[in-house]
Design a protein around this nucleic acid. Sequence first.
DNA 1: CGGAATAAGTTGACGTTTCAACCTATTCAG
DNA 2: CTGAATAGGTTGAAACGTCAACTTATTCCG
Lengths: 166, 166
Amino acid sequence: MWLNNREWSAWLHLLATFTLLPAALDSQLQREAGMSHFEFGVMAALSRQPGRRLQLKDLAVVANGSLSRLSHVVSRLERQGWVRRVSGARGRATNAELTDKGYKKLMEVGPIHFAEVRRLVFDVLTPEDVKELRRVTSRLNAGLIPETNLGPLARRTRASALRRSS
Amino acid sequence: MWLNNREWSAWLHLLATFTLLPAALDSQLQREAGMSHFEFGVMAALSRQPGRRLQLKDLAVVANGSLSRLSHVVSRLERQGWVRRVSGARGRATNAELTDKGYKKLMEVGPIHFAEVRRLVFDVLTPEDVKELRRVTSRLNAGLIPETNLGPLARRTRASALRRSS
DNA sequence: CGGAATAAGTTGACGTTTCAACCTATTCAG
DNA sequence: CTGAATAGGTTGAAACGTCAACTTATTCCG
């Protein structure tokens, strides 16, 4: 219906993967750790930052989510005592910081989760496959990353261009 | 944290792809056609069936969704007049059938949607990439497809085995 | 044949995501 | 310096997905 056969077949497979895989991971984390895959991702991202903290807008980029979503998620994680909000020294910035309790939880959940990732992904693929997967997804992402990554200058330019043209 | 470097990098990219890509497609379809990507998938699947109808349980497999989700979605699509429920000749089976209105809508939306798919996916990749993508996702799916696909015999056997062992 | 187990579907409640509206600190242009 | 625009964030409502409970038809087994 506007894709050739080769593309159509690839598309069906890709579709199935990105429907089934997140569902599988979400479901396992939910059952065995009481958190969503997204929440896990946020906490894992925080754990790798100096001071285990990050400003929400940056967290949004790292976790591939909207600012609104991040705000909600951080609220939930705060309720669990795994994360705490720390208003940044300057301006309206808000930082999310992983608490000790959160860090402990993460250390506990990590192995469980990654065992599942290994089972579902890396055990199934050869090292070759992994290399290809990395290469191809990396290409796809380049086209998917929103204009955020044009850098401040390009963004500013683009913004005024839009303004002028309206 | 339990993945080696190569795997970790691949994992981050894969994660970003299957977060960003569905989000992008969903958002475009929602804006320009007032339907979700999943709904589109369901209607597209129906359109390829003889009589443009399919039993819900089969639709669930084709669309990679739970039966419950399908039931809800079909209700929504029914409200739009794009799909109608037809109780199967035999038994408790329920079929979903694409209406003419639904077909028309689909024909209208299809090109718009696939243009976006092309833009985000196939324009970015070489034919080589597409081949690899198909190959790797197909492998992943093999491990992801739930036990549904063991086939009726294996399923029955497995079921009684479980029963006996409890 | 008769009851237990199972398959197919529906439903309602609950939690999550998205979207739009909003707020307020900061920056920029004139 | 002042007002407009923008960046960062929050919030509430509506839409959506998941889960568990439930219903009814069918099949299996003794």
